[in-house]
Amino acid sequence: MKSLGLRRGVNWAMTALCALALLVALVPLASLLWLVISRGLAGLSWDFFTSTPAPVGESGGGVANAIAGTLYIVGIACLIGVPLGVGAGVYLAERGDGPLGGAIRFTAEVLSGVPSIIIGIVAYALVVLPMRRFSALAGGVALAVLMVPTLARSTEELVRLVPRSLREASLALGVSEWRTSLSVVLRTALGGILTAILLAVARAAGETAPLLFTALNNQYWNLRADQPTASLTVQIYNYAVSPYQDWHDKAWSAALVLLLLVGTLSLAARLLARNRFR
């Protein structure tokens, strides 16, 4: 039998190690946030938000077209992905207790673990190959495919929170089942579903890999769905791997803009969720 002192010592040491794990996890986060903010702020100006990228060596220039492009591509993704994802989620919550529901739920879980670059290849085959050009539409399709499984799972959880009595009241009034699902259950869960959509949008806006060979990139303004389109993430990547110092600075500034965009979306989602349950 080990002495009590030794055992206490081991206990203390392990507690310290676990607390150390917390520190180890937080150091990279702190370093990353600090650098994005400090190095990013240095290059931010009004110009950065309103102009298109400048060629190497020229001062000024911004990422206005990339910001617009990200919003545009994500918008297309929402048009396709939100109805499918939310619809599937409502199905899972309302009718998903059978074997089909189980299969769909499991498929959604597994799909959410598929690397996003793979989805890029799929969108390439689906849209870029037949159209013979890179386009915002292809990027939107890629992000939509990424959205569907996560949105389906989160919508299901939220719809399951709707009280049975509401559903039964509607059915008792003679409303058909699917009308009940859409105009009673879905409407009640709407606030929560908006939260889920905002989180999905935040995630989609931060994706790079599936856009590399679907939406590609563009140094100019573009708002046509069948043309290559810039996005913040791809722009950050291109700036970062370039050999030019002033492009590196722009990468940090663009990263700050991206974090602000993603952070605002997530924060809005959190606030929305909080108000709902008050």
Partner: peptide, 26 residues
């Protein structure tokens, strides 16, 4: 019925992913 179609969308998405990957890489 409408709902079932929407629910099956997840399965369709999965099938499309597999089919397209096989078509290009197969």
């Amino acid at each position: 019925m409408v709902l079932t179609v929407l629910g099956a969308a997840v399965l369709v998405v999965a099938a499309v992913i597999v089919a397209e990957l096989l078509r290009v890489g197969g």
